[in-house]
């Protein structure tokens, strides 16, 4: 058994507003082991983002426990690069926030950017980069503080189809090469199949787990997975479960 990095134990979360209360998540239990890539799919508005906020410690559960053995890095739908900072300074942002802005950490973050093809853009402002490159910069920023688990909140959904396939490929290979643990939430079934080691299917609100599957592709990258015969099999299964 691998070391567990992130564990949800019978987690329930309820939002309170003036109009009443909404239970977003109901009795959710799962865990993610070190180096594992887990994707969660569910109908839109089912409380997927709430799960990430709980994992990141931005919200506390109404009941149950969230245990995270390590630090988290959050990646959002849009790159959220700060337009007044150069790419290098954007990537350095988590270091500044976490008071780790030492020469050592800076050099590491910069090396990571260079390694993944952002070297020539380090002194550029985000507006000069394409959507795909910006999202890659956002990933490098997330990795700069060397988090133990990556929380990916539909990080490809704002990109056009062509770019999305490329960036998915990109992000997948970077995360696997850096041996990171990741939790991806998405409503895109094929994205989940092509990226994850394990796919968790959530029900509509209040969200709880309806199914869980290990993906049996082995070590092949997202585009190759899409060509694999098992891909359409999984797509059919997940489609039925999501709409069942």
């Amino acid at each position: 058994m691998k070391k567990e990095i992130l564990t949800f134990r019978t987690v329930t979360y309820t939002y309170h507003t003036a109009d009443g209360e909404i239970t977003a998540i109901d009795n959710l239990t799962f865990s993610i082991g070190e180096g594992e890539f887990v994707a969660m799919i569910g109908p839109s508005g089912c409380g997927k983002s709430t799960i990430l906020s709980l994992a990141a410690g931005l919200l506390s559960p109404s009941a149950g426990d969230v245990v995270c053995n390590g630090t988290v890095g959050y990646m959002l739908q849009r790159d959220e690069l700060f337009p007044w900072r150069t790419i290098e300074k954007n990537i350095r942002l988590p270091l500044e926030i976490k008071k780790q802005d030492t020469t050592d950490h800076r050099v590491k973050a910069k090396a990571l950017a260079v390694k993944y093809g952002l070297g020539e853009f380090l002194q550029s402002y985000p507006s000069r980069l394409s959507g795909g490159m910006r999202q890659r910069a956002a990933l490098i920023r997330t990795l700069a503080s060397d988090p133990d688990v990556l929380l990916l909140d539909e990080p490809f959904s704002a990109l056009d189809y062509q770019t999305r396939l490329n960036v998915t490929q990109d992000v997948s290979s970077i995360i696997r090469r850096e041996k990171k643990t990741a939790l991806l939430i998405t409503h895109d079934i094929s994205e989940a199949i092509s990226l994850a080691d394990r796919v968790i299917v959530l029900t509509g609100r209040p969200a709880h787990i309806s199914h869980m599957h290990e993906m049996d592709f082995g070590e092949i990258d997202p585009l190759k997975r899409r060509e694999n015969r098992a891909f359409s099999k999984w797509f059919e299964i997940l489609w039925k479960e999501l709409n069942g």
Partner: peptide
């Protein structure tokens, strides 16, 4: 979203 991002960094 940028506030959320910063908060997630602590």
């Amino acid at each position: 979203n940028k506030v959320l991002l910063l908060r997630s960094m602590g």
